[in-house]
């Protein structure tokens, strides 16, 4: 008899436990777990850049893209460290068969804050270098430049799950050498956690 009562109590406890677990899994998106994980993340985006300032009339917008790798936090866990490699293409108005390509390689920090439910805001600051390539059809010599580069990148992200998010950003990039150029881009992409 004692054994039966013990088994009954255990089974009730088990049911209660599974029920509680089941309840948690049934509504994961309502209360997402804060993302303080140190797991690395990869973000892939495509960009539509637009040149601002004194170079604005020299270029037509082309397409671009970027790959951002968030590596495990080195400093404060709420600051996400990342390295990004971008690729932006602009057509030169002198003749649209000429293109100018910018490849920024940047290191940066990003903070994330919750806006509503699974929607978060992000703000990143990054610095590094850019390569600039002037591509002229049939040219025997490719024109290359190197520039110091800084970037401010506000954005929004929507967590689809703990490992996958849609991101939309608007990075403003400054490239500086003997002269100065800046461009702002509309960026859409996905971020995956390993």
């Amino acid at each position: 008899m004692k054994h039966r009562i013990l088994l009954l109590v255990l089974s009730l406890f088990s049911l209660n436990s599974y029920g509680a677990v089941g309840q948690t899994y049934s509504q994961p998106s309502a209360t997402p777990v804060p993302t303080t994980s140190h797991a690395p993340e990869l973000e892939l985006s495509f960009d539509i850049p637009s040149v601002t300032g004194t170079f604005a009339q020299s270029f037509n917008s082309g397409l671009g893209g970027s790959a951002v790798f968030y590596f495990p936090q080195l400093l404060d866990p709420s600051l996400h460290n990342f390295i990004s490699v971008g690729f932006q293409t602009f057509a030169v108005k002198t003749d649209t068969s000429i293109s100018f390509r910018v490849v920024p390689v940047l290191l940066g920090l990003e903070v994330r804050g919750r806006v509503y439910s699974d929607l978060k805001s992000t703000l990143a600051l990054a610095a590094g270098g850019s390569f600039g390539f002037l591509n002229i059809p049939n040219a025997t010599n490719l024109k290359v430049g190197g520039y110091f580069t800084a970037q401010v990148k506000p954005g929004l992200e929507w967590d689809m799950s703990n490992d996958f998010a849609l991101v939309g950003r608007m990075p403003l990039t400054f490239i500086m050498a003997s002269t100065y150029m800046s461009y702002i881009a509309g960026e859409l992409g996905v971020r995956m956690r390993f």
Partner: peptide, 28 residues
């Protein structure tokens, strides 16, 4: 150190290639 290396990556290339830096030509 990483930041310095990446920054110098761009600046180190300043003036490389042949002749003019594209940005000194492609302005408005």
């Amino acid at each position: 150190l990483n930041l310095a290396l990446v920054s110098s990556l761009g600046m180190g290339l300043l003036g490389c290639g042949t002749g003019l830096d594209p940005l000194t030509v492609l302005d408005n």
